[in-house]
Simulated scan of single mutants.
Amino acid sequence: MQRRFDDILVGSLELFCLAAETGGFSRAATAAGVTPAAVSRSVARLEERLGVRLFVRTTRTIRLTDAGRAYLVHCRQALDQLAEADREASGQQSEPAGRLRISVPTTYGHYRLLPLLAEFHRRHPRIQADVHIGNRNIDFTAEGFDLAVRVRKPPDSGLVARHLEDAELVLVASPDYLQRRGTPGRLGDLAEHDCIQFELPSTGRRIPWLFRDGATEIEMETEGPFLLSEDVLGGVSLACSGGGVFQAYRFTIEREIAQGRLVELLPRHGGRSRPFNLLYPHGRHMPLRVRTFIDFLLESVRAGFSAAD
């Protein structure tokens, strides 16, 4: 088999990743214990081999080109896998280590995942967690993610979905708003109220509100003066400030209800929920750090997220 890589190339990849992640050749040189000229030569060697520019350079800064950003994702994955192979071969993999990349929605991120990370770090200090908090769908391969939490499993047979929980939905408004506009007594009354809308970034569609009427499940389109996008927690903030009626996950507004900042509405029509799932690619070799985090998160779900309380 013809060799495609040598020690010099692998070292160049490491210095390229350092330069991209630290934002400069000098900072990368300091981290690696080499000279800035050595970093520059390594990057130039890669660019010549690939036939593309990886960085746009000015006198003071560098920034990745589009090709450089795509190359960084794959290089980081490859270097992480090499490091893990070394640990496994040398018997050091009994302690999970390395970089873990997770994508999580704003609701689940702030109220479920982030409160757990300090405990996870105490248990596994050699794992570095890179957390993307946002509501757009991510590309596991192109963006280098290990795991994602989503309400819906994308129509992709290459993904495994592990159910985390069914998050109950609650209709709320502030006491100030209800004093001004009255309290809805039935679902039909919502047509006369300011209903705070949220638009799904992936589809551009407004999220319908979910209710029960006895044994019948209802999906309701509502109207109102406010349309939010990207961060659904903005609806909670707007409702607390008297902006209108909003349907939110109970775990995001429990404290506000207990403090009297929000009032639960139409409870007899409640009880609907949406599922949260943990997603990861099917068939990909799963590093120990990823398996460790999956076990930790599922354990926390079973314990009722006690670490976050």
Results as ranks from 00 to 15, higher is better:
F55V: 07
T35L: 02
S26A: 14
P36R: 06
V34W: 09
I62R: 08
I62C: 09
F25D: 11
R57E: 13
L54K: 09
L64Q: 11
S26F: 00
A37P: 00
I62K: 08
V34A: 02
R49L: 15
V56F: 04
S42L: 01
R60C: 00
T58I: 07
T35I: 03
P36L: 09
L50S: 06
R49T: 11
R57F: 04
E47A: 08
A38G: 02
R41V: 13
A38L: 04
R27I: 00
L50P: 06
R45H: 05
L46W: 05
E47P: 13
T58W: 05
A32V: 00
G33P: 14
G24R: 02
A32R: 09
L46Y: 06
L54Y: 02
L64G: 02
G23E: 08
A28E: 06
G24M: 05
T35F: 05
E48R: 15
V39T: 04
L64H: 02
A38S: 15
V52G: 01
F55D: 06
V52F: 13
R63W: 07
L64Y: 02
F25M: 13
A44V: 05
V39H: 03
A28W: 04
A31V: 11
A31E: 14
T30R: 14
F55K: 07
I62T: 04
R57A: 10
A38N: 07
R45C: 00
T61K: 14
A29M: 08
T30E: 15
R45E: 04
R27G: 03
R45K: 10
A31N: 10
G51W: 03
S42A: 15
R49P: 00
T35K: 10
R60K: 13
T35R: 12
S26V: 11
V43N: 10
V56Q: 15
T61P: 01
R57I: 04
F55W: 07
G51I: 07
T58A: 12
L46F: 08
T59K: 14
V34C: 15
R45Y: 03
G23S: 08
V39S: 04
S26W: 00
V39A: 03
V39R: 07
T30C: 02
S40H: 14
L64N: 01
R63F: 06
G51N: 12
T61V: 04
R41Y: 11
A37W: 01
R53S: 09
T59D: 14
T59P: 04
R45V: 00
V34F: 04
G24T: 07
E47G: 05
R45L: 04
E47L: 12
G24S: 15
A31Y: 00
G23Y: 02
R63H: 12
A31G: 01
T59Y: 05
A29N: 12
E48N: 13
G24C: 05
S40N: 12
A29Y: 02
T35Y: 07
V43K: 06
I62N: 10
V34N: 03
S40T: 13
R41G: 01
A38F: 00
A29Q: 13
A28L: 13
T35C: 05
T65G: 03
